[in-house]
Each structure stands twice: as C-alpha cells, then as structure tokens.
Deep mutational scan, measured.
Amino acid sequence: MEVRTIKVFTTVDNINLHTQVVDMSMTYGQQFGPTYLDGADVTKIKPHNSHEGKTFYVLPNDDTLRVEAFEYYHTTDPSFLGRYMSALNHTKKWKYPQVNGLTSIKWADNNCYLATALLTLQQIELKFNPPALQDAYYRARAGEAANFCALILAYCNKTVGELGDVRETMSYLFQHANLDSCKRVLNVVCKTCGQQQTTLKGVEAVMYMGTLSYEQFKKGVQIPCTCGKQATKYLVQQESPFVMMSAPPAQYELKHGTFTCASEYTGNYQCGHYKHITSKETLYCIDGALLTKSSEYKGPITDVFYKENSYTTTIK
C-alpha cells in the first residue's frame, strides 16, 4: 500500500517557510505537534488534498525554529505562539472599519479597549522592536488589523473576551517599542525636605499616572512627601515624541487643539466601556464603527496623549 502524501510549508514567522512532505494517514499533531492554519487549530486533523502548498504555523520545537521565533517575536515564552494563534482565530472574524481616516474595530468580545489602543497607536510616533509587531502594525494602518490585535493580546497575556485596560495595554506595548531616546527629568520640591531631581528613561519617561493635564504637570502637581507634608512635583525636561497622561476616570474637559487623542471610560472596574476622542479640525468621538463630532467635550476621561518633541522648564 502506497503512502499518500502532500507537500506543505511549516513556519513560526510566515517569513521562513520549511518544506514538509506530510503523510495523509496521520494527523498534523502526530507529525508536527500543535499546528495552526489561519489561526485555526488543526492539530487533530489529517492532511487533505486542499492543504497542498498551504502554510501551517507550528510551535518552535527545534533550534532553527526557536531562533526564527525569537528573532521575529522577541520572546522565548513557549506558550506565546499558541496564544497568538488562538487569538487570531477570533480577531480574523472582527470587522476593521476605516473611521475618520483611522483603522478602528467594530465592537465584539469586549474589544473596546483594543480599538482605543489601536486608534491611539496610529496617532503617536512609535516604532516597535519585534519585527512581528512592526509588520502587523503597518498592515493594521492599511486596514488589516487582525494579526496586530492578536499579537497585542498575546504580548499582554490576554484572551479574547476578557476586559482590558488601555493604560495597561499601552504599557505592555511600550515595553516592546523603541523608547531608548526618551528621557524625563522631574523635580520634587518640599518646604521641609528641599528639592530632589529624578531622571527617568524609556517607558517611565512617557507615562504618568495622577493627572490628565500635561500643562498642569509642567506647572506642578501636589504629591505627598515622605515627611508627610505636601510637596510639588513638576516637569523639568521632556525628550520624547509623545507623552501619555493618565488618571482614574473623572469628568474632564478636553479643549480642541490642546491634545492629540484621549480615552474615555464609562462604567466601573468590573464592567465598563471605552471610547476614543481625537482632536482634528474639530473633536471626534470614535466608538467602534461609530463616529460623532463636537466642538467641545466633557466626560469621564482616563488617558490623554500629547505630541511632544523637546521641553525644558522655565521655572527657576
């Protein structure tokens, strides 16, 4: 009895394709271990004539594949690729409408935090270190965002349907971005203890939790000093293409032309909904596939993004 075979390709990165001759009487799992086709788990399936010449994702289970996976995804987590594939199996079914010149995501599976993050990423200057993220990001900007969303979920250790947080998501993504040249110098002034300067680099240099107003941050924000008295913390120097200011959701007025974009969060910790506000020729609110415009805006804002380049204080 002759062994019926077909020729397929296996890959971990969709760049390096490895030619395989597979036995049609055995499952993919018996031949390769966990195997995925377009995100779908085909591990328990036997090869079919229609699979001839198709590319299958496999887990990096030998040295060659491990090197290829690390170079593309910059992670050695053995569960990463499987999590990416199972997320992709959902995100490829989502709709990605162009809204006001940006790629958004039609609401499904509690994905409003991903839509808000995706919209924000198209408006701030950011370059990702893992080629996987950078490639998928370019495709997302062009309207094909399924891979990018699935990668975000995998890097953030999230599953489809789980509630997510924009600030946490951005923080994970910033860790995989090139923020080497970003720098922030802060000064804390206390009447009792004097003053202390701190220099922050990388992710810490672009994120701040405690106030939404970048102007206020430049002037000074009140913080408790270690001595128990009130101290003032203010920005001395900022070198970065953008800054992200966050605070627990509270009524906040966004003035046209003073910011790049913002995240609105309605609801409580267990259950809520994100919308995205962007400042173009007027203010726009993007909620999944829905767009509304207004000249002014007041609502429960939790993150505001500002364009920056270089700032030095005039406070002496």
Rank of each mutant, 00 (worst) to 15 (best):
I286H: 08
M209Q: 10
F80H: 05
L81C: 08
A136G: 06
A154Q: 00
N61A: 12
V8N: 02
Q238H: 03
L37Q: 11
K293N: 11
Y138W: 01
T258I: 08
I315V: 15
Q222M: 11
T198C: 09
G161N: 05
L59K: 12
T198R: 14
L88D: 00
P249K: 04
K201H: 11
E296I: 15
T120G: 08
G82P: 12
N309L: 13
W107G: 11
L151N: 00
D109M: 03
A250C: 13
E52I: 10
C227M: 01
E253N: 15
R83F: 03
P60A: 10
E68Q: 10
A177G: 09
N16R: 10
C112Q: 12
L291D: 06
N147W: 02
D63Y: 09
Y311I: 09
Y28C: 02
G29P: 02
H18L: 08
Y138V: 14
A69K: 04
T232L: 12
T211W: 01
G210H: 01
K229A: 14
H276W: 15
Q251I: 13
H256S: 14
N187V: 11
Y113K: 02
V166N: 05
H276S: 05
N187L: 14
S50R: 07
L212F: 05
T302S: 13
N49S: 12
V67S: 14
C285G: 04
V304K: 04
T5H: 15
N89C: 12
Q222T: 14
A247G: 06
A136L: 01
P131S: 02
T11Y: 01
L133T: 02
I6V: 09
S171W: 14
E162N: 07
K307S: 13
V243H: 02
D135W: 00
T159Q: 13
E71R: 13
Q30K: 15
L254A: 02
E162L: 04
P224D: 11
T302P: 04
Y113S: 15
L65G: 15
P47D: 01
T292C: 12
F305W: 12
L114F: 01
K275R: 15
D13L: 01
A132L: 02
Y155C: 00
T27C: 14
Q238S: 04
K293H: 05
D38H: 10
A145S: 02
D63Q: 09
K92A: 12
Y311V: 08
S50E: 13
G220F: 02
H90K: 12
L17Q: 09
N187W: 11
C182R: 03
A231D: 02
K307A: 15
L81S: 01
C261E: 15
D109W: 00
C149R: 02
E296S: 14
G194P: 09
Q122L: 08
S240Y: 03
K233H: 13
V8K: 00
V21Q: 10
T11R: 00
E71Y: 11
T120D: 02
K158M: 00
Y297M: 05
L81P: 10
Y234L: 07
H90Q: 14
N111H: 02
Y137T: 04
F9G: 05
V22G: 06
Y208I: 05
I45H: 10
T292L: 09
Y72E: 15
Y284E: 00
Y72C: 13
T27R: 10
G101Q: 07
A146I: 04
G39H: 06
Q20S: 13
N100P: 02
A140T: 05
E281W: 01
S240A: 12
T312M: 13
Q197H: 08
F70R: 11
Y172A: 14
K46S: 13
W107A: 15
A262N: 06
L212H: 08
A150R: 01
C193Q: 09
L186P: 04
L118C: 01
Q123K: 01
Y234R: 09
P300C: 11
V22K: 00
Q31G: 01
G82W: 10
E144V: 06
F80Y: 04
Q196T: 14
K44R: 06
E296P: 08
E253Y: 13
A117D: 04
G53P: 00
V243G: 02
A115H: 01
D62C: 14
